[in-house]
Lab assay of single mutants.
Amino acid sequence: HDTTVHINGLRIEVHGASEEILKWIEEAARRGVEAEEIKRWVEEALK
């Protein structure tokens, strides 16, 4: 999927993410993980 995830006011563009990654992002956000940190993880995961 190409999608934009909104976390604590930060937009994260996610290209080619699976449902699993999207669920993981939402879970991390709920746990209060910094949005910048999530963004870094997602970029690494999608390389």
Rank of each mutant, 00 (worst) to 15 (best):
A28K: 01
K23E: 10
E34Q: 11
E20G: 08
E26F: 13
G32T: 00
E36V: 09
I12V: 07
R31L: 14
R30S: 15
V5Y: 06
V42I: 10
R40D: 03
H15E: 13
E27L: 05
E43Y: 10
L22T: 03
T3H: 14
R11T: 15
G32V: 01
H1K: 14
V14F: 12
E36D: 11
E36F: 08
W41Y: 14
T3K: 09
I25D: 00
D2V: 15
K23Q: 09
G9D: 05
I7H: 04
R30E: 15
E37P: 00
I7P: 03
L46M: 12
A35H: 06
N8P: 05
L22P: 00
L22Q: 04
I7T: 03
H15F: 14
V42N: 00
L10H: 08
E43S: 08
A45S: 06
E19L: 13
E20H: 11
R11I: 15
R31T: 13
H1S: 14
K39N: 05
N8R: 02
L10Q: 07
G16D: 07
L22W: 09
A29M: 15
G32C: 01
K39S: 08
V42L: 09
W41Q: 04
I38F: 01
T4F: 13
K47C: 06
E13H: 06
W41M: 07
H6S: 14
E20A: 13
E26C: 08
A17E: 02
I7Y: 05
H15G: 14
A28W: 10
H1F: 13
A17W: 08
V5R: 02
W24K: 01
S18A: 06
I21H: 02
T4R: 04
K23R: 13
H15N: 12
H15P: 13
G16R: 05
A35S: 06
E36G: 08
G32S: 01
R30V: 13
V5Q: 05
I7S: 03
R11K: 14
R30G: 14
I25A: 03
T4Q: 10
H6N: 15
H6G: 04
I12G: 01
R30W: 10
I25T: 01
I25C: 04
L10F: 09
E37Y: 10
I12P: 01
E27V: 03
I12E: 02
E19M: 13
V14N: 02
K47W: 07
E19G: 07
E44V: 08
V14W: 09
E43Q: 11
G9H: 03
H1W: 14
K47M: 12
E27Y: 03
L10V: 15
E26S: 07
A29V: 15
E37T: 09
R40F: 06
A29F: 15
V14C: 03
G32A: 02
E20T: 09
G16H: 08
W24M: 06
H1N: 13
V42H: 00
I21L: 11
R40S: 08
E19A: 12
E34I: 08
W24C: 04
E34H: 13
E13W: 06
L46G: 02
I38P: 00
E43L: 10
R31H: 12
R40I: 08
E20W: 15
A17V: 10
T4N: 11
I12D: 02
H15Q: 13
R31I: 11
K47G: 06
E36R: 06
E44Q: 11
A29E: 14
A35Y: 13
V5L: 14
N8G: 14
I38H: 00
V42K: 00
E44F: 08
L46Q: 04
K39W: 09
R30I: 14
A35G: 06
H15S: 13
E43I: 12
D2P: 15
T4M: 13
E43P: 00
H15Y: 14
E19Q: 13
E34T: 14
E26V: 11
E34G: 13
N8V: 06
E37M: 08
E36K: 08
T4W: 09
W41S: 02
E36W: 12
E43H: 07
L10A: 05
H1D: 12
I21C: 04
K47V: 10
H6W: 13
G9M: 01
E37L: 11
E37C: 06
E43V: 09
A29T: 13
E19C: 04
E36Q: 10
T3E: 13
G16Y: 08
D2G: 15
A17F: 07
A17G: 08
E20Q: 11
E13P: 10
I38Y: 01
R11C: 11
S18T: 15
W41T: 05
A28G: 01
I38G: 00
G9V: 04
E26Q: 11
E34M: 09
A35Q: 05
V42S: 00
R30F: 11
G32Y: 02
E19R: 10
V14A: 05
A17Q: 04
K39Q: 11
G16V: 04
E44R: 07
E26K: 08
V33W: 12
A35D: 06
I12R: 00
E36N: 10
T4C: 14
D2R: 07
A28S: 04
E44M: 11
I25Q: 01
R11E: 14
L10G: 08
E37G: 02
E13V: 06
V42E: 00
H15W: 15
E43M: 12
A29Q: 13
A35R: 04
V14Y: 10
K39T: 05
E27Q: 06
I38C: 01
W41A: 06
V5H: 06
K39L: 13
S18M: 07
V14H: 03
A28P: 00
K47N: 12
E43T: 09
K47Y: 09
V33D: 06
I25E: 00
K23V: 09
A29D: 07
A17I: 10
V33R: 02
H6P: 03
N8W: 00
I7L: 05
A45H: 11
E20M: 11
I21P: 00
K47Q: 11
H6E: 15
A45V: 11
A35L: 12
E13Y: 06
N8K: 03
G16E: 05
A45I: 10
E20S: 10
L10M: 10
V33C: 07
A29R: 12
E36C: 06
L22R: 09
R11H: 14
I25S: 01
H1E: 12
V42Q: 01
R30D: 12
W24R: 01
A35T: 06
E20P: 04
R31V: 11
A29I: 15
T3N: 12
T3M: 13
V5N: 03
T3S: 13
D2W: 15
V14E: 02
A35M: 09
R40K: 14
E13S: 06
K23N: 06
L22N: 03
R31E: 11
E19W: 13
G32D: 03
